[in-house]
Design a protein around this nucleic acid. Structure first.
Length: 633
RNA sequence: GCCAGCUUAGCUCAGGGGUAGAGCAGCUGUUUUGUAAACAGCUGGUCGUCGGUUCAAAUCCGACAGCUGGCUCCA
């Protein structure tokens, strides 16, 4: 939703493109005009900026002294209904640029009447309309807006709408420009569809990973520990461990070596890599040795002097690592490397820390400390293509195994106009070509976006939507010609000459935190057997001694086979036991009573799926083991 | 970081200037039971924190913290 809006703001759509608007988009865009009409009746001094349709509705950005709150929605909607009832025509009026400027100056655009002030944003928008493009208004009732359309015929065609929330937004997404109130709403062709949408939205809230994560005791974020710092509770840790085991197996198959590196490293390391002080704002502040601190304190050194000395390298310190690559690079550089051992593939579940702005933090998807399923491949230039391919295959394998097929692939390229990138443009061209080539071979749809590259190289990102429609970057594969340069890495080629390796950074999950957050929503907490925190619970019908002994034997057999299982052998009602197991989302329930004991069998029940019938005990156990081993969904 | 809203028991939530409420969870008993709630009793909260107004503040006001939705950012 935000994506579309941003694009709308960044790139002007051509008139032809605008004519492509679907009927639903027209309804929503028209509804934005109706919203503006209503707001003006209540607050005539409102100044409007953009009011586009977006993925699930529409918004209109407004500058207004009054702070609009959800409490105002009712009376705004009331005014909107009046406008709908009036069934005014959306009339297109083509005007000359001079006329438009005059109307904007008299406050008439985005207004019901001429007003004291100018239509400031409309005036600015007019400025951006190319000389050769026609300028048009759309008028419904008294409301006239600068608008290329298209619209529905009449306000009466907007039959079902609802204001949903207010947020703030900078004009044109630019921090230095005025902050506007963005009023979001949604609209549909009819009331039934609107209600279905609202209901679906309510249901989506139920599977929000923050909610499920708390209910199922998967993870916690505790303000005594710190914002954006995830506590993995036992059940969440189990899920994470199962995922890491899965990745580790795949790594072994693909010739990776796993390593461990520390959480902090000297500032100098990150000066070499270019992270410090360049990306200082997004890092936790450096750690200075006590001795150095005391010495500076004795000298009466000010805070800003300390900061300067750190930046300039006059004093040293340590940095909580914002990335793993420099450490992996130092592992590579421990001794001379031969072309024969390339590619060197170093993998680590490496925890990194980044200073995200407080307003950005949320759940597991945006945090300040997270563990990447990271790896760095040191390859010859010829190996770049096939190795990138291998990485993409790994990402695809991972997503397929989890049944996450609803992703988008983005090739993130540099923005030629920006200076935030390091390295030789010729190398960038090579890297971008290699990525484009690999993604084409992968055979999945993708799009290319300029300006999304990492500062050291272009990348391929896998994007997945969460339950409320926000899109998150998970897996990523990045080609990097720059860090090998900065760290002066070499290998000896078959020609006995020294050569520069190329690095590939890749993380199929991206980060364990974000990935598991999205995964919780994907499964709604109902993990497949191989991931379920509690895979099997054995429950007896009653607390009869013999029956409990039978249950214990089954439980011990499962535990010995490595199945995460527990037993509920109390004298409680079986209904209660089942209820608890269902609430805790235990994957498989084995219910045993006298009949099962007699025949050496178990009654199987699956979470959310109910009774599955009775099976001989051995058969049931071996089926469980097989499903776990196969990572069956 | 910015704008707005929210914060009452472990969870979900009601209440609201005059002795703090419910359901679930938890604890203690009882219940030997055929697949989404057996029964009884008990415990549990300085109403996010700090300050102000008031005879009296959980309730009104302010600051701060945290959370939520956006914006900006995201190596």
């Amino acid at each position: 939703m935000a994506d579309e809006a941003q694009q709308d703001e960044k790139k002007r759509k051509s008139l032809e493109e605008r004519e492509q608007m679907t009927e639903l988009e027209r309804i929503r865009h028209s509804c934005a005009h109706i919203l503006a009409t209503a707001i003006l009746r209540l607050w005539p001094d409102a100044q409007f900026a953009y009011g586009p349709p977006v993925e699930n509705g529409f918004y209109y950005d407004v500058e207004l002294q009054h702070r609009i709150s959800p409490e105002d929605f009712e009376r705004i909607e009331e005014e909107m209904r009046k406008e709908v009832k009036a069934n005014n025509k959306f009339e297109k009026i083509t005007v000359t640029r001079e006329q438009a400027i005059a109307d904007a100056k008299s406050g008439r655009l985005g207004g019901l009447t001429e007003r004291v002030g100018e239509s400031v944003f409309k005036l600015d928008l007019l400025d951006q309309i190319p000389e050769d493009e026609a300028i048009s208004y759309f008028q419904n009732g008294e409301f006239i807006d600068l608008c290329a359309g298209p619209h529905v015929m009449r306000t009466g065609n907007v039959k079902a709408f609802k204001l949903t929330h207010v947020a703030s937004a900078y004009y044109k997404g630019d921090e230095t420009r005025p902050q506007l109130q963005r009023i979001y709403g949604t609209a549909f062709k009819n009331k039934t569809q609107l209600e279905e949408f609202l209901k679906a939205k309510e249901e989506a809230k139920e599977r929000d990973h923050r909610r499920v994560g708390r209910q199922q005791e998967l993870f916690a974020i505790d303000d005594q520990v710190g914002q954006g710092l995830v506590l993995w509770m036992p059940k969440g840790a189990t899920v994470r461990q199962a995922l890491q085991d899965f990745i580790s197996e795949e790594l072994a198959k693909q010739g990776y070596d796993q390593v461990f590196t520390p959480h902090i490293g000297k500032l100098g390391l990150y000066r070499t890599s270019g992270h410090f002080p360049y990306y200082r704002e997004s890092q936790f502040p450096p750690i200075i040795e006590n001795e150095a601190l005391e010495k500076m304190a004795a000298e009466g050194c000010s805070c800003s002097e300390i900061a300067n000395r750190l930046n300039e390298g006059q004093i040293d310190g340590f940095l909580l690592k914002p990335m793993n690559c420099p450490m992996h690079i130092r592992i590579y550089a421990q001794r001379p490397r031969s072309y024969r051992e390339l590619p060197v593939r170093l993998a680590e579940f490496g925890t990194v820390y980044r200073w995200e702005q407080s307003g950005e933090l949320g759940g597991m998807t945006r945090v300040r400390g997270f563990t990447q399923d990271d790896a760095h491949l040191f390859v010859t230039p010829e190996q770049v293509g096939p190795e990138v391919m291998g990485c993409l295959d790994l990402v695809k394998t991972v997503l397929t195994t989890l049944g996450m097929n609803d992703y988008r692939v983005r090739v993130s390229l540099r923005d030629p106009a920006s200076d935030k990138y390091v390295g030789d443009p010729a190398n960038w061209d090579k890297a971008e070509a290699a990525l484009r080539d690999a993604v084409q071979k992968l055979g999945v749809p993708y799009d290319e976006v300029e300006g999304e590259a990492a500062f050291y190289g272009p990348k391929i990102d896998f994007l997945v939507k969460d339950v409320i429609g926000r899109e998150w970057q998970l897996g990523t594969v990045q080609v990097d010609y720059n860090l090998p340069e900065r760290f002066d890495l070499h290998y000896i080629g078959s020609d006995n000459q020294s050569h520069r390796p190329v690095m590939i950074h890749r993380a199929p999950f991206g980060s364990m935190e974000r990935f598991v957050g999205v995964l919780i929503e994907h499964f709604n907490g109902n993990f497949p057997l191989w991931l379920a925190p509690e895979q099997v619970r054995v429950m007896t019908l009653n607390a009869d001694q013999e029956l409990v002994a039978y249950g214990t034997a089954i439980l011990n057999q499962l535990k010995a086979a490595g199945v995460r299982s527990s037993g509920d052998f109390s004298s409680n009602d079986i209904k209660g036991k089942v209820l608890h197991a269902e609430q805790e989302k235990v994957h498989t329930m084995l219910v045993i009573g006298g009949r099962e004991m007699e025949s050496g069998s178990v009654a199987i029940r699956l979470h959310g799926k109910g009774r599955q019938g009775v099976k001989p005990r051995e058969e049931a156990v071996s089926e469980l083991l097989e499903a776990i081993a196969r990572r069956k969904l």
